[in-house]
Structures are given as structure tokens and as C-alpha cells.
Amino acid sequence: MSISCKKATELVSKREEGNITLKERYQLLKHISACYLCKFFATQNKQITKSSKKYEAAVLEDNLSQAQKSKMISSILESEGV
């Protein structure tokens, strides 16, 4: 029996979590070979998780301003009664 796109996307997530059964894996592969929408979905999902790992490692220049740093210091000292 063939599965729906909704079910196929769920199986894509299940596969990424590593807890897909053999039967489900077969159902998913069969669906994806016939459905380009779900094929896009599966490929793109992989790209997103891969990019997220790169995002973690990327050096982005988000900095606190000098004013924010000074305020941070003074509010700690103030709250601690220094």
C-alpha cells in the first residue's frame, strides 16, 4: 500500500532520527521515487540540518556594544551592593 505525502515527510524526519523500520524505509523510498515534491523535501531537509551544523561552527561578528558591556558590569556591581 502506498503512503501519502504527509506520511512520507513524517518518515523523512523519522529516518533522520534513526528510528525508522525497514518496512517504513521501503515505503519512503518507493514514495520518493515517484513523488518529486517529497524528494525535494527530503533533500532540502538534509541541507538544512547540514547548514545548521555549519552555522554552529561559523564565526559571526555579533558583538555587544561597549555601552552594553559597561551596563552589564555596573548592574552586576549594583545588584551585589558593591
Binding site: S4, C5, K6, K7, F40, Q47, S51, Y55
Partner: peptide, 29 residues
Amino acid sequence: KYFDADGHWTKSAYPIEWKKADMESKEFY
């Protein structure tokens, strides 16, 4: 909202092909 009652993608939610390859730039992040 992505699927109809039969579990098919709704037209407005159809995934499209991603031709833009850049997913590692500061802008993307």
C-alpha cells in the same frame, strides 16, 4: 496547513527546487 485531507501537499505548500546553492554565508545564517 501543508497537506489536504488526503495527505497530499496543498498547492500553496508545494516544495520547489532549490537552485540557490549558497547556504553557508553570513546572510543565510
